[in-house]
Design a binder for these strands. Structure first.
Lengths: 124, 124
DNA sequence: CAGAATCCAACCGGATACTG
DNA sequence: CAGTATCCGGTTGGATTCTG
């Protein structure tokens, strides 16, 4: 399928693929493309992780960010939050079944990213 | 591989996977996760597209944004810019060979996004 | 056609301090 | 431990106008 830029009988250009409601790619990106969102999901992939551990795993992110993103992921049903009744209290985060479905392309992304030339690293 | 939260001989918790330099996922996201970046790349995948056509395809984005992201993608070597010597001047954008390597991931993302429940659509 | 320039409000996100 | 609250500077990105 080409990008569908056609010309009509009179040679006028037409773009038939206009998507005023953002296309799938964009909608998806707004869910897992936020700052730290992908990393969080990725670090939860092997099983439940506690808040502070997660926070340590993702060195660059502040607790505020981790919390904010976790809440968002929870609301969207990608992540599950479980409070363990211990003392001091412990909270575990894990990926839901729905969240799992995102992991396959995150893995694609990871593979791609690992091949990136260093000069692209804008680690501002 | 589990998330590698271990306990040492004395039972102290250790997180061995700390990544102070952001992990691959995050680095990748900062390249193709920007607003409109994915969409742009995606709409170029079937061949060269002219600036205004691209702009029309991605309804929600302003020209300013399109330009900005295209410059960025060009600088990173994902997109090629070619000025056609016509009058009025016409400019074509296309995906470079390097850019192509990102498309498989974007396709995975697209497939995932198309299955998303509508209630997640925060089309703010 | 393909942008560049300017303005400006809104949001983002880091730092820091505090809490049950 | 697992957050919440507040402050605040920097960036983002939309709207609009102008140009070769």
């Amino acid at each position: 399928m080409r990008a569908r830029i056609d010309e009509d009988a009179k040679g006028r250009r037409q773009v038939s693929e206009a998507c005023l409601e953002p296309c799938a790619i964009e909608r998806g990106m707004r869910i897992i493309g936020g700052k730290w969102t992908g990393s969080i999901l990725w670090h939860l992939k092997d099983g439940p992780v506690r808040f502070n551990d997660l926070s340590r795993m993702i060195g660059g992110a502040s607790k505020k960010m981790i919390t904010e993103r976790l809440r968002q992921l929870e609301e969207q049903g990608l992540v599950r939050r479980q409070v363990m009744d211990t003392s001091p209290v412990s909270v575990q985060y894990s990926v839901t079944e729905f969240g799992q479905t995102a992991l396959c392309f995150l893995d694609e992304l990871r593979k791609w990213s690992e091949e990136l030339p260093q000069e692209l690293d804008r680690t501002t």
